[in-house]
Amino acid sequence: MEQQSKMDMFDIFPEECMSQIINLTAPRDASRLSVVSPAFKSAADSDGVWEKFLPSEYKDIISNSDSSSLLTTCMSKKNLFQHLCDNPIIINNGAVLNATWGSAGDVPMYWILPSQSDSRFAEVAKFGPMWYFEVKGGMETKLLSPKTIYGTYLVFKFHDLERRILYKEDPPVKCGVYFEGKDDGKRHSLFLDPAGSMLRRYRDKGDGWMEIEMGEFFNENGHDGMLMFTFIS
């Protein structure tokens, strides 16, 4: 009897229940579930499941970016999700982030804004030999998807390796992410060098650019005003 009910389990397990269960997991889980069996794979790969993992307004986001709108029509939702993980899109052509690149006494000469760079971002600040710097910035939360947890990353690159060695001995930099007017003063310590202790927060993009997680926040409805970040050596 027990054996019987086990054998029949997937046959009788309603497909819509299965899809709903997979929907309520996370992209990593859904990917892993596709290895369970061919029947699971077809449920776990379905557009219905992956469309829920995409931001609810993903079509608008893509059409307001410089990425091709063909993305939304020519790919399965699962492939689209993976494509967006590997090829982040710049929303509103990058005109959403305001950053001030400050330094001791706000002497701007230590920051150079090169007109060309190999970064995917429109504006890049190049930091000269300095012992202290401060970056502050913010963006409107209403530009972000509601009910979504966001990570905030610093994307950077060492333009000369000696700097990198110097950073190894430097104290960690302090960074914080908060909503404007609601700064609780909490700051995280980060080592810019990957050999530092924050390995989990660090990602090497393989092209010299690196990412460090500065913090995360939950965007409830986009009514929280400006999201601010600071980064101080």
Partner: peptide, 17 residues
Amino acid sequence: LKNKSVEYVRAFFGIEN
């Protein structure tokens, strides 16, 4: 099922691979 192995899920649903 979150963060569980493939083997765990198979056992959970009694699925032959």
